[in-house]
């Protein structure tokens, strides 16, 4: 229940943020537990003999790396069987395309990956895919395969409700919290603020609340969730000052997965299931659903 309420609240704040008025908060619409995605029939010859997709479809089981601690993208509360969020919804579409039931927890394992272990997990084959607010970067592409993006987000700032701060430029010399090891932390340092590393986003939010730090920063979608949890005490401000291209990670051992992932994403863009996934998670009844981002070309095999 908590997740639903939170998501609804997040949607509300997102709306107000988009329309530029931060003061008012509308009523939140209610939603279901994500989209019910059905497994597709896999016909013979759909996947090329010997491809990784064929192996997975044959085995009927898959492991996906997702985040457990980012409301809206990948979040799992103690009572959930399956994590929720936009990342998870996209994962479901990929799983279903292999003919596996995404809601069957005996066939699909949603393994928690944190920022540090996404590449090692892919390299070691511990997870087959990573959909964990996984920014596409050139450096990461040296060790793992990444394709997409299926979502574009940017870094924003979360401050106390009574703060005068309007953008990162107002925070030069001030202390700004973000999760230890994140690119966000590096970005605020580059902008002239003092980075304060923390273990979790909620820890940062706590520090903003009690005034220990001036602000916190990370992807806007996460900040909206936190602001919704502390309505009236925290607010998201400023333009996005970085662009994060969220994509799907796969192992470089199976380059054939890239075209398949792009295919599934393209199909989802066209048949409306991408928009449906967005509306069920980051979006909502009142939120305008953005255009799906253009996909990168797969590297030549």
């Amino acid at each position: 229940m908590r997740t639903m309420k939170l998501r609804a609240a997040a949607a509300t704040v997102l709306l107000t943020a988009l329309s530029g008025t931060l003061a008012a908060c509308g009523d939140a619409g209610s939603e279901g537990e994500g989209v019910d995605v059905q497994a597709e029939e896999v016909e013979d010859g759909k996947f090329e003999e010997g491809s990784r997709m064929a192996e997975l479809a044959e085995a009927g089981s898959i492991t996906i790396g997702v985040k457990y601690d980012q409301p809206g993208l990948g979040f799992k509360s103690a009572t959930d069987d399956i994590p929720t969020g936009f990342d998870v919804e996209i994962a479901k579409l990929l799983v279903a395309d292999l003919g596996i039931d995404p809601s069957d927890t005996s066939a699909v394992t949603y393994e928690e990956t944190i920022s540090d272990n996404r590449e090692p997990y892919l390299e070691a084959g511990r997870v087959d895919l990573v959909l964990a607010s996984y920014s596409i970067t050139d450096d990461r592409r040296q060790v793992v395969g990444q394709t997409g993006p299926y979502f574009i987000t940017g870094q924003q700032i979360l401050v106390g409700a009574d703060s005068d701060v309007e953008s990162i430029d107002d925070l030069v010399g001030e202390t700004v919290c973000s999760v230890s090891g994140s690119t966000s932390l590096q970005n605020v340092e580059d902008a002239g603020a003092v980075g304060a590393p923390a273990d979790t986003y909620s820890q940062c939010a706590e520090d903003v609340l009690n005034g220990t730090v001036e602000a916190m920063t990370t992807d806007g979608s996460i900040l909206l969730g936190l602001a919704a949890q502390n309505e009236g005490e925290l607010k998201v401000v400023g333009p996005e000052f970085s662009e994060e291209r969220i994509g799907v990670g796969y192992s470089q051992d199976y380059p054939e997965m890239c075209e398949w992932i792009n295919g599934v994403l393209t199909e989802a863009y066209e048949d409306g299931s991408w928009a449906e996934a967005f509306e069920a998670t980051l979006g909502g009844d009142d939120v305008e659903t953005p255009e799906p981002p253009a996909l990168d070309e797969c590297p030549a095999a």
């Binding site: 590449e119 450096d139 990461r140 040296q142 590393p197």
Partner: peptide
């Protein structure tokens, strides 16, 4: 941690 995250390679 920042560096390992930025430079996975």
């Amino acid at each position: 941690r920042g560096l390992t995250n930025d430079f996975a390679s």
